[in-house]
Structure formats: structure tokens, C-alpha cells
Design a protein around this nucleic acid. Structure first.
Lengths: 343, 343
DNA sequence: AATATTTGCGCAATCGATGCCGGCCCTAAC
DNA sequence: GTTAGGGCCGGCATCGATTGCGCAAATATT
């Protein structure tokens, strides 16, 4: 079986002690240049690589960070992971990914598993189901660095990275309004998620600015975050059947946007007559039919930023007490065909 | 800082030796029931978890597997990762993911990094750029278990998991033929990838079955696998400008399918008049316009299977010499609007 | 020339957990 | 009464690498 060379092998071969070899490789000041060269050359020759596991055991550091997201098969998260991975690898950290599938139980298991695997820190976006945060507060109190992104919680004081969800929702809603729509339904995510509230606020603010009364009956929540298609389809059905009539839809998340369009296509003969604007990071939005005006979050950048903040926490010499919540700007992409303009 | 309880803490608190505690926790036969209960109860109370790093150092096993894919932000791969992750977690392995971005250099760095991180095995889908496999053969010769999926190579004898690319390409091409098209261009992936050849063969076989001459000038390769959009757009331009005329396109990969539709929409006024059939695992294919008939690979199942095979290799008591290449069946989804039927 | 200092390197402990070996005590068999 | 054996547990070495301390030889100092 695969047995990598150890520092002992070098020591034996060269007639030095392991301590000398270790110090020579790390350029210890107490070792002569001559010895260093001999050791380094030999190490190079036999392709010696230090064993990270032994290092971890000594240093109480594993140089790995854990990531918990709903699912990787989702444009927003896979882009974020892309960002996480790029920074982590540059700084010498491994990335261990796990998926909650928007399930509370899976989230708990995964975080425990990761913490138990001695990750040096955690990057997490909360599952739609989670309302009890003790699995995280416990770890955090024990000193495990955690950074939240996208779906954050107030209960833990630490760095957070989010998109400007308020502005995004505001812009999308206002776009619909400016195109002559006023009976705008809101297909929203699970009630207790931070993003749900922030985006709802943006939606309300846009209505308010344009003197449209907020009508709670026009809001439909999907408690499973779109993971269960039937739930989305039902919500869309409800929207289509509103007694008061609906002339546009603002959708609160990536998965819901796709679900909404799918449901519309299925339920509505001329789906494009009901304009939809929503959050999406899909890379094929421009090709969708029914079409979608969309708000795109800087997912890659969010991942990068979260990782930088986490590594700062991990490598901090003194306990960090000042935390920041970074808010990145979103981008609105207008799709004319999606607006059913009445101008 | 976060210092988990160790076996020593238990030993000290209870007045036993560390060996006794260790054996009590693992149900060693030489420990009395009474002691076992005391130890286990206390361990439960202080939430003792064994340190996997120490275990790895002793056992020369890290219970982690490395995954190298082009990118996670790609439906096929994110679904495959989903499958990998599900099996791995069930069997107690962590998953460490890295992306090659279809670059040779990144692939080499990542595999080295993973091997050096003492992963117990590797699951890999080759990058489009890679033609030199020594970074993998070396590791494999040293005894590192490797399983290939999707984009495999002949040079290394080990388990492989692929979709039936021949059948997929055949079915997609034949679909176009049966709908009255005969001048079918082929937008293909990087020349040396296994999937490129297999799919090309399927394409040729379908033409041949229907007595259509294979015309090499109707084939356009994208050496970067669609990672560079301009390359795809150029290829599509070339296809549209074929002197001989083209009345349908068969596309060889997920990313290329999306790129092709994007280019068509941009370049062609009535994009839907040129039917496209191609490989895709996107979950929004049904909503695309121009529309796409598509071949879907069982990505999740491929990931699961590859992981099971890898763990078999890792946990094999004796060196494995018999390797298998699993070929999973594909599914063809017909999209009427995408066919420009001339029936 | 005798002492002080520097240079260069080895010994041994350490990180957390395991496992071999050896030893104590109690019981049973001769 | 002596010894053999089993039940039960502790000591110590081990995995790979790092590090404080100590020691010897080489060099510098007076």
C-alpha cells in the first residue's frame, strides 16, 4: 500500500536525527547551510511531503473548512462554492462540502459531523426548515469560527455576507410597477429565513413608494424553499386564482423562480402574459420561456468574501470581538419580453 | 480556544488509564461491564468525540475522498456530486471537492494537493485540456485508489462509471433524422476526451443507419469544452455558414448545448427553425427557448456508483485486480418545438 | 591559555488514540 | 498449600512531525 516518505526515512538515510531534518526543512536558524542543502536536496529527490495529518495533530489545526449549503445543484450555491474554493485553495485550506437539502435534521447532522472532523471553521447558509439554532450556538460558544452567508441568523454574532436583498426586491418590484403592473403577487420563500424577510421588505417598500397598498393575500410562502415542486405549483395556482386578479409576480428565490415559470407554463396557456421578476443566478435565464426579469446576486464574490472573513477569524491571534455584515450589491437584468408592458 | 475533550480527560476524571478508557469505549472484551458503563456514561455526559485526526494518524486512513471535476456550477457535475456526497456520508467518509475548470494545470495541482492531503481515494472526471496522465498514473502506481467517471481514460486500469454515450448520441441524432433532417451538424467537445469520441461514434452510427454520409466538415470541436463562450459562438457561426447548408445540430455536452442555444438566439433571427438536440442535465431544459431535445445522463446515480466502487477499493482487504466499467443508460427527452418537423 | 560564547545538532516530550505486553488479584484445581 | 489460569487494568511504544532543552565542538574573547 501507498506509504509516503516520512521525516524519519530522511533522517535514517542521511544519518541525522529527525529534529535536525525537521528544522532543516523549515529553515530553522540553528541548522548549518550545508546540512540544510543536503536534507532539502534529498527530500526533493524522494518527493517528501509533510504529512498534514501529523501536522494537524500537533498544531490543532486541520487546514480545512466546512461548508453547509442547501444543495450544490443550485446555481447560486454552486457559484458561491466556486468562490469559496478559489480563496480556500489559495490560502492552503481544503474545502469540505455538505448539503442540508433544506432539511433541519440534515443540517444538524452535517454541522456536527464537520465540527467533529476538526474543521477549523464553518461557512453556512441556513436551511429553510431550521428554527432552532442550538447546534450552531453551541459550536460557536466553544470557539469554532463561523461565517454565515446568504441565509443568516441574528442569534449568533459573527461575520456575515449577504446580498442587498432589500434593494434587489425593491428593484424587481419597481420594475414591474413601472411597466404598468400594480396587482403584484409575491411568491416567497420559507417564512423564517432572513432573506425572506429582507426581500419582503423590499417588495413592500416598492409598493409603498408607488402608493400601492400592500395586500397580504397576494403573498404565497413556500416553506420548503422550492425543494418540493408541488408546493410551488400549488402556490402558483393560488396566485392565479386570486379573486382580486394578479397582473405580475415577484419571486423571492432562484429555485422558486424556476418552479414558478415551470408551473406557469403548465397551468397557463399564454404564460408570458403574466410577467415574472425574481431572484435567479441561473446561467441560462436569458434563454427561458416564459421569460424572466431577474435579480442576480454576486454569488462568487459572496463565497470569496465569506471565505476570507472566515480565514481571518481562524488565523486571528487574538479573539475577535468586532464583527461585520458585508452587504454586496445586486444586479437587475431587465427582460423586455417578461414585462407584458402596457406603456 | 475550542479544545474538545480527549480520552485523557476522561481517564483523569475517572481515575482510569487511557488504555482502559479507549477499550471501554470500543467495547474491548477485557474490560468489565461495570467500568464500561462508567466510562461510557461519562463520555456521553461530556460529549466526548474521538479525534479523527489522531485516528487517521494511527490508522493511516483519513476517511476522506477527493473529487476532481471541471466545475461544480454545472448541472451534470453538481448532480453527480450530490450522489457522491450521499454515499460518502452514509459510509462515514468526508468529501473534498476541487475544480479543474477544464485546465490541465489546475487538475495536476488539485490531484497533488488531494493526494498530499491523505485522501483515501480519488474520484475524477478528466479536464478537457489533459492529454498527459502521469500525475494520475504515478499516484495510481503508488496504490492510491482511483475511480473515473464520465470523462475516463484508457491508460489507467481501474473502475470507471460512464453513461452510454454512444446510445445517447445515437438516439439524439436519430431523432433529428426521423424528423426529416439530414444535414446534421455536430457541435463537439474537446477532441481527446473519451466522451467526445463515444458520442461522435453514436452520431456517425445514426447517420450510417439512415444512409446519410458522414461529412467531417459538419463537425466543429470546442477544445475548451464550452468554458470560453466565444469559442462556442464561433463554432456555431461556422455551422450556420456551411456552404452545404445545415438543417439541424447535435450537441455533445451540457455546457455546449447552452452555449449553442445562446449563440443561436444571438445570431439567428428565428432560432427555433434550426432544431437542436444535445446532451444536457440542466433542470430547466423544458423552459428553454430556443428549445432543445435532450439526452440526460443519470448523473446522481453515476456519482453514487462511482463512490461505492471507490469505497470498495479503499476497503478491499486484498489488492483488487479485476476492474469494471459500469455503463449507465441515458434518457432521451423529445421536445416537439425543437424539431422543426417536416413530416 | 583559560574562559565565554556561538554554532550545530540530538534527546525526549508532545499531540490523541490504540494495542501489545505484563502484572495484580481472585478463584479453582492439584 | 501451591500453582495455574482467567478477569481486569496500567505502562509503554507507536503513528509523523515539532520544539524546548541540553550538550558538545568550534570559535571568539580577555
Amino acid at each position: 500500500m501507498f506509504r509516503p516518505a516520512t521525516i524519519k526515512d530522511i533522517a535514517k538515510a542521511l544519518g541525522f536525527s529527525t529534529s535536525t531534518v525537521s528544522r532543516a526543512l523549515r529553515d530553522g536558524y540553528e541548522i548549518s547551510e550545508k546540512t540544510k542543502n543536503i536534507v532539502k536536496e534529498y527530500a526533493q529527490k524522494i518527493e517528501y511531503k509533510s504529512n498534514p495529518i501529523a501536522l494537524s495533530l500537533k498544531g490543532r489545526r486541520s487546514y480545512s473548512i466546512g461548508v453547509v449549503v442547501c444543495e450544490v445543484a443550485n446555481s447560486f450555491f454552486s457559484q458561491a462554492i466556486n468562490g469559496i474554493e478559489s480563496i480556500a485553495y489559495n490560502k492552503g485550506y481544503r474545502v469540505i462540502i455538505s448539503q442540508s437539502h433544506d432539511l433541519y435534521e440534515r443540517e444538524v447532522i452535517n454541522t456536527k459531523h464537520l465540527a467533529n472532523s476538526s474543521v477549523d471553521g464553518l461557512i453556512i447558509s441556513m436551511s429553510a426548515e431550521t428554527t432552532d439554532f442550538t447546534h450552531l450556538t453551541k459550536l460557536h460558544e466553544k470557539g469554532l469560527p463561523i461565517v454565515f452567508f446568504d441565509r443568516v441568523i441574528d442569534e449568533i454574532k459573527t461575520h456575515k455576507v449577504i446580498a442587498n436583498n432589500f434593494d434587489g426586491a425593491f428593484a424587481a418590484t419597481e420594475l414591474l410597477i413601472k411597466n404598468g403592473h400594480s396587482r403584484i403577487a409575491h411568491l416567497a420563500n420559507a417564512t423564517h429565513l432572513s432573506i425572506t424577510k429582507e426581500r419582503m421588505d423590499g417588495y413592500k417598500a416598492a409598493l409603498s413608494k408607488h402608493l400601492i397598498d400592500f395586500n397580504p393575500t397576494l403573498v404565497e410562502h413556500c416553506q420548503h424553499g422550492g425543494m418540493i415542486y408541488d408546493e410551488v405549483e400549488n402556490a402558483v395556482k393560488n396566485i392565479l386564482n386570486k379573486a382580486s386578479g394578479v397582473d405580475a409576480i415577484f419571486v423571492s428565490s432562484d429555485r422558486l423562480s424556476i418552479g414558478c415559470l415551470t408551473a406557469l407554463k403548465k397551468l397557463h396557456s399564454d404564460a408570458d402574459c403574466l410577467p415574472v421578476a425574481g431572484f435567479s443566478n441561473s446561467d441560462v435565464v436569458e434563454l427561458l420561456k416564459p421569460s424572466l426579469s431577474y435579480v442576480r446576486q454576486p454569488a462568487l464574490e459572496m463565497g470569496r468574501l465569506a471565505t476570507e472573513l472566515l480565514i481571518d477569524l481562524i488565523e486571528a491571534k487574538y479573539p475577535v470581538t468586532e464583527f461585520e455584515t458585508k452587504v454586496l450589491e445586486i444586479e437587475l437584468f431587465v427582460n423586455d419580453h417578461a414585462l407584458g408592458s402596457r406603456r
